[in-house]
Design a protein around this nucleic acid. Structure first.
Length: 107
DNA sequence: ACTGTGACTCTAA
DNA sequence: TTTAGAGCCACAG
């Protein structure tokens, strides 16, 4: 039988697949992880990510809120700069245009 | 098993 | 557009 992977491990696997220039909301990641509505739990999982995984290994900077705003409480303003460099489109209010940049999901 | 916590989300005003 | 309140879930103690 299938060894039960923890939700958190699943989340890390999903986030690792988010392509450059795209973003995914916590809720969307939860959905792909097989637990719709567990957006908050995804946030908790991201909080526990080892610093070494941050960056190319685990692009947690591409995980944002459903309305397109960023988690500045953790990244400080740095996150916006990184996403812009990756090609993410920002609106006038400083939020990502989810209509265009939201990840469509893993293959 | 229960309770508290938090990088969330939705609805209404 | 922004703020406020209630609902959600996984994880640690």
């Amino acid at each position: 039988m299938i060894p039960a992977e923890t939700f958190r491990q699943r989340v890390y696997a999903i986030v690792a697949q988010i392509p450059r220039g795209k973003v995914a909301s916590y809720g969307l990641v939860a959905l792909f992880a097989g637990r719709p509505g567990a957006a908050r739990a995804v946030g908790t999982a991201m909080r526990e990510v080892p610093s070494r995984w941050r960056g190319q290994k685990l692009p947690c900077h591409r995980v944002i809120k459903s309305d397109g705003s960023l988690t500045e409480a953790v990244f400080g303003g740095r996150q916006k700069k990184i996403l812009m460099a990756e090609g993410a489109k920002f609106g006038r209010t400083g939020r990502v245009n989810m209509k265009i940049c939201e990840w469509e999901g893993p293959d």
